[in-house]
Simulated scan of single mutants.
Amino acid sequence: MNILSEKNLTITSETVVERARLLVPGLRARQAETDLLARASNQTIAELEAAGLFSMSIPRAYGGLQTSISTWKDAVMEIGRGDGGVAWAITLINACNWMAAGFFPKSVTDEVFAKPNTRVAGVFSARGVTARRVSGGIIVEKGMWFFNSGVYHAHWDLLGVPMFNEAGENIGPGIALVPMSDVKILNDWDTIGLRGSGSSNVSMENVFIPDERIVGLRASTEGRQDGAFQDQPLYRTAFTPLMVAILAFPLLGMGTQMMEEFLETLPRRDIKLTPYTKQGEAAVTHIQIGQLSAKIHAAKQVMAKACSDMDAWATKSEYMPILDRASICRDTAASDQLMWEAAEIISQAAGGTFARRGYVLSRVWGDMKVATQHPFVSLMSNFEMYGRHVCGVNPPLMPV
């Protein structure tokens, strides 16, 4: 089934996961091209768009799918089986579409989502941003933002900026929504993994941003930021656990691809300097498969529960309690660690072939290594945050 030839079929939350699964062979076939471009190709973007992968978090009012978080996870996981970097861009774009839809007034969302298949990228932290208060908004005189995943395919960008009161005093961090015409892509994404995410740094100079396109980061993380679609469950999902959890979705697919590739090639492998002519007959291989499959299975189960919990809390009038939010961040970091440990087992079992450039297993291993470096999924930081809440100590970290 060719996704591009099926545009006339209605895409729904029920079909988007299957459509993602159908794209896996093509994504795998284009991995070398993706790595060379350091972002997804035009063909890949067209197929992802046709399959509805960019519209999972866009409101139905604007023609989006407005799926559950669980469906979002399942669809991104499938894309991660094809190309981890592309999956990373998809999950970040959906996260930013979700924020643009959920935290801004209708006058802004009407503008952002006026055209179908809108894509919003974003970086919530900033490096050396200089801004000042002016009538009706702020002017960003100069600023740089690192690792802007999916930015090559975006129409809008969410960028961290300072917020000011009427007196011009800095009152904390904010997030500004700006059109890509105001953003300069620096074309500096050159990494050992997640090449397909196209996570280039970006900059801006002398850009005016109106007040209605700026929201408070703290208000967003605490569930106090109002928006046009806060009456609908998806957009009432707790901010921080969602932003952390969505980073695990691609990893679940990457680890699955590594295991699938390892098992597929296993019958053709031997183990050098041992009596085994077939690696699949060795007891050590059986143990390794048991270990890595258990880790992958556990990570998937943990994230399935995390997504189910977020979906359930979003239907309630009460914002998800802080300890529940912290536990999802903790569990996401632990799940990422399990996926990485599984990847390490496979790398050890792969033998000398693992060192070859372009080898599937080492490529995905590189994707997973880069993905687990993101500060949102830092194992020790998330463990500390959860433990501090349990102990009643206010954590000196980003609030959840």
Rank of each mutant, 00 (worst) to 15 (best):
S125T: 11
S125Q: 10
A126N: 07
R127L: 08
R127E: 08
G128C: 08
G128T: 09
G128L: 13
V129T: 15
T130L: 04
A131M: 07
R133D: 07
R133M: 03
R133C: 02
I138L: 05
K142I: 00
G143V: 10
M144L: 03
W145I: 01
F146N: 08
F147T: 04
F147G: 03
F147Q: 11
F147N: 12
S149L: 01
G150R: 04
G150M: 04
G150P: 05
Y152G: 13
H153T: 02
H153L: 01
A154P: 10
A154I: 08
H155G: 15
W156C: 09
W156E: 11
D157W: 00
D157C: 14
L158W: 01
L159A: 04
G160T: 10
P162F: 10
M163C: 08
F164E: 13
G168A: 07
G168I: 11
E169T: 07
E169H: 02
N170V: 02
P173L: 03
P173Q: 14
G174F: 01
G174M: 08
I175N: 12
I175V: 15
A176T: 07
L177V: 10
L177S: 15
V178W: 13
P179C: 06
M180S: 09
S181H: 02
D182W: 00
D182N: 14
I185S: 05
I185V: 15
L186K: 14
N187D: 15
D188V: 09
D188H: 09
W189H: 15
W189I: 07
G193D: 13
R195W: 07
G198Y: 04
G198L: 07
G198W: 10
S199I: 00
N201I: 01
S203V: 05
S203K: 05
M204D: 04
M204I: 12
V207R: 12
V207A: 06
F208N: 01
I209E: 08
P210Y: 06
D211K: 08
D211P: 08
E212N: 15
G216H: 10
R218Y: 09
S220D: 03
T221L: 12
T221E: 07
E222Y: 06
E222M: 10
R224S: 07
D226A: 03
G227W: 14
A228Y: 06
A228L: 05
F229I: 05
D231P: 10
D231W: 02
D231R: 13
Q232V: 11
Q232C: 03
Q232N: 08
